[in-house]
């Protein structure tokens, strides 16, 4: 690594004045920006542990004087969207119901498409794939209305299947790309050897390709869990009243309350909504970055 090469020299001899000031500059720059990036999280956390009285009288950046979990309990169990005061737990449940099948199926389709595209010669497949990729750049607004009509015709508009199918559709480009690129890196001789061993399309997929896909499947799970959990627009349009995901419910709680805004509850609700992607992010670490990178560039 180049940073080690650069530092190897630096650590052996005492630093010059210039270098000392350089180090101070670097840490000041990074430290200040770190504070800027952490500020929102800090504000949300301290406010969510305050009582409403304290929020009203005190300052947003000060630490809570009386540590209280009331706002969290309220956000989870009894925060109101309009007349409905059942808290975010409903949205959480809905998000999980949407998340699990959407993630599983979109990854399965991505793996299958990627496998068929990189190992089998299907005429026209690359044209299809190009259209799919191009489609991933198009704003959802172009597709939404026709899809709404289509779901309405088939009678599933505003239901769990509708939102799951929608997530599968819009997750397909990036999932297919992810697996296709991964499989293109596998030796094609492996596939040839399996053909000679008499394995067919599905046998090769299930016995050889899928067991080798664990690393990329982890990346795919991270990407899809984060993306689907954070989705707002699709959930709003397709999930229907009874299945609104957590993000939509959060926005409703925060932006439709009448009377005095309960900032402590709102902020607790915001933190709650962020917990799943934040946990995924903190646990997955470099896999998360790998997902970002492989989702967009080849290899």
């Amino acid at each position: 690594m180049m940073s080690q090469a650069k530092s190897a020299n630096a650590s052996k001899r005492p630093l010059t004045y210039q270098e000392v000031w350089g180090r101070i500059g670097i840490y000041t720059f990074l430290g200040l920006l770190a504070l800027f990036f952490l500020l929102p999280l800090y504000v949300m956390l301290v406010t969510s542990f305050k009582s409403m009285d304290e929020v009203r009288l005190g300052l947003i950046f000060s630490l809570p004087q009386h540590f209280s979990l009331d706002a969290w309990v309220k956000a989870w169990t009894s925060a109101c969207t309009g007349l409905d005061c059942t808290g975010l737990q409903v949205g959480f449940g809905n998000s999980v119901k949407i998340l699990v099948p959407s993630v599983v199926f979109s990854i399965l389709f991505g793996a299958l498409n990627g496998y068929a595209l990189s190992f089998w010669k299907v005429k026209g497949a690359n044209v299809l794939f190009a259209c799919l990729l191009l489609g991933s750049f198009v704003p959802y607004q172009v597709f939404i209305y026709p899809l709404v009509r289509f779901y309405a015709q088939t009678g599933i508009y505003g239901s769990l299947p509708a939102i799951v199918i929608t997530h599968i559709i819009f997750g397909m480009p990036v999932m297919t790309l992810l697996f296709r690129n991964y499989y293109s890196g596998l030796p094609v001789e492996l596939f040839k050897a399996a053909r000679i061993d008499g394995a067919g399309f599905w046998k090769i997929f299930i016995s050889i390709v899928l067991p080798m896909s664990v690393p990329i499947a982890i990346v795919a799970v991270i990407m899809q869990v984060t993306a689907i959990w954070n989705d707002f627009l699709l959930g709003l349009v397709f999930a229907g009243r009874d299945n609104l995901p957590m993000t939509v419910q959060l926005n409703n709680i925060v932006n439709t309350t009448t009377g005095e805004r309960a900032y402590n509850v709102n902020m607790a609700a915001t933190v709650l909504t962020s917990l799943v992607p934040l946990t995924v992010y903190l646990v997955s670490g470099r896999w998360f970055v790998r997902g970002i990178a492989s989702g967009a560039v080849k290899g």
Partner: peptide, 21 residues
């Protein structure tokens, strides 16, 4: 004919062993 029906065995440069087995 399909590869498996030709009565052939093949050895590859990269060995092409199934890594998970």
């Amino acid at each position: 004919a399909d590869p498996k029906d030709r009565g052939i065995g093949m050895v590859f440069q990269s060995y092409a062993l199934y890594p998970t087995m």
